[in-house]
Design a protein around this nucleic acid. Structure first.
Length: 254
DNA sequence: ATGTCACCTGGTAGGTGA
């Protein structure tokens, strides 16, 4: 069973690339971030024609998440119960017995701003939500655009990024709190090439120079840890003529 | 190189968010 996450930065723009990618990588489940589409504009028919059941939770211009799966999924939850939020950032469903939570974590910049405070509040709510879900669904995957680089080895220039958004102690502490629930960073269960990133700024020729961050993650619960066969970042879509700034991340479960 | 992209409002550009 393969599961993946991809911040597509506008599904309206990226739908052809997504369909192309799914044709080559027919993953069993995929969560999308930054669809930037209200639900009435979501391309459900196109994705169903490609063989996927879809659930989605969007808004105009910003944010927006979706869950796609080859087998039908159920028990869908949009955003986090008990955390009132106008921003569409979380979608959850059960696929083949695995609880899948897809998240588009707030960017939060700059540190000290109102948006940063929102990011911290949101991260606290997420921890509570994941803890509650784990209690009911021990086989759980939390994946998405975390907007957090967990360690310095996830940053192309740790000195320049020190204390900057994605790299603050507060954000890394919240990431650690998620791991403390018994989750594991699937990517780090394996030996990986140094300078592995999932996001490269559109500016500054960052992709060509491989100046990026690893901020898109797949966390698996303790019950699933033994089933993880591989976890990889697929850089190929970032080489497209009109790419998202993020690459998909894929995990394979036995 | 302060070198991008996507989307909005209200335009044949400027602002915002990332």
């Amino acid at each position: 069973m393969k599961l993946a996450t991809w911040n597509v930065n506008s599904l309206a723009v990226r739908l052809p690339q997504l369909l192309e990618w799914l044709a080559v990588h027919p993953v069993d489940a995929l969560v999308l971030q930054e669809t930037k589409l209200t639900d009435d504009k979501f391309p459900a028919a196109e994705l169903q024609a490609a063989g996927y059941s879809v659930s989605f939770h969007g808004q105009k211009t910003y944010n927006g998440v979706a869950l796609l799966s080859r087998a039908p999924h159920d028990a869908v939850v949009k955003n986090m119960p008990g955390f009132a939020d106008e921003q569409a950032r979380v979608i959850t469903g059960t696929v083949n017995g695995v609880r899948v939570i897809g998240g588009y974590f707030p960017n939060g910049q700059p540190p000290g701003s109102e948006k940063f405070a929102y990011k911290m509040t949101w991260l606290d709510a997420l921890q509570a939500f994941v803890a509650a879900e784990l209690a009911v669904h021990p086989q759980l995957v939390l994946m998405g655009d975390f907007n957090i680089a967990p360690e310095d080895r996830d940053v192309h220039d740790p000195v320049a990024w020190a204390g900057q958004i994605h790299c603050t102690d507060e954000e890394r502490g919240r990431f650690g709190a998620l791991l403390a629930l018994g989750l594991h960073d699937a990517f780090r269960l394996f030996e990986q090439a140094p300078k592995s990133w999932s996001w490269w700024d559109y500016r500054n020729l960052a992709f060509r120079r491989n100046q990026g961050l690893r901020i898109d993650h797949i966390l698996v619960s303790e019950s699933l840890r033994g089933r993880v066969l591989s976890c990889q970042i697929d850089k190929q879509p970032r080489k497209n003529e009109r790419p998202s700034d993020h690459a998909p991340v894929v995990v394979e479960l036995r």
